[in-house]
């Protein structure tokens, strides 16, 4: 029983990660692929934050009467990773818009067929 309590967090995170991974490799539409990529990315964030959590700890902002704080380092890493993640998502979406302009479609197999014709 304690086994489940110790690890359930990681397992659900792995499940989310695999859901995102599945969308990335099976979806044909580029926008959906990017959504899958983002789901994957968020699950990695959650993994880090789970590692940083200390039971009975509190948010790492000093306050009176609190002795145990959670680990601030994963928070810093993930905070910047989120902003960078959105910036890269924006670049990906911009590429999708340009692909739509150039090929008239955002379905992977369709524009690959068009590529083959050239």
């Amino acid at each position: 029983m304690s086994f489940i309590v110790d690890y359930y967090n990681y397992w659900i995170v792995v499940f989310l990660m695999m859901a995102g991974f599945y969308i990335v490799i099976s979806a044909n539409n580029l926008v959906k692929k990017i959504v899958g990529l983002n789901i994957f990315q968020t699950s990695v964030f959650m993994m880090y934050i789970s590692i940083g959590k200390v039971q009975g700890g509190s948010a790492p902002i000093v306050a009176d009467g609190i002795t145990s704080y959670s680990n601030p380092l994963p928070h810093v890493l993930i905070l910047t990773a989120i902003v960078v993640g959105v910036a890269t998502t924006a670049v990906g979406l911009a590429l999708v818009v340009r692909i739509k302009r150039a090929y008239g479609t955002v379905e992977e197999n369709e524009f690959e067929d068009k590529d083959a014709l050239i």
Binding site: T42, K53, H75, L79
Partner: peptide, 13 residues
């Protein structure tokens, strides 16, 4: 993230 004490991260997310 709020629940796991990462308030700054939650803010950003």
């Amino acid at each position: 993230f709020v629940n796991l004490d990462a308030v700054d991260v939650a803010f950003t997310e």
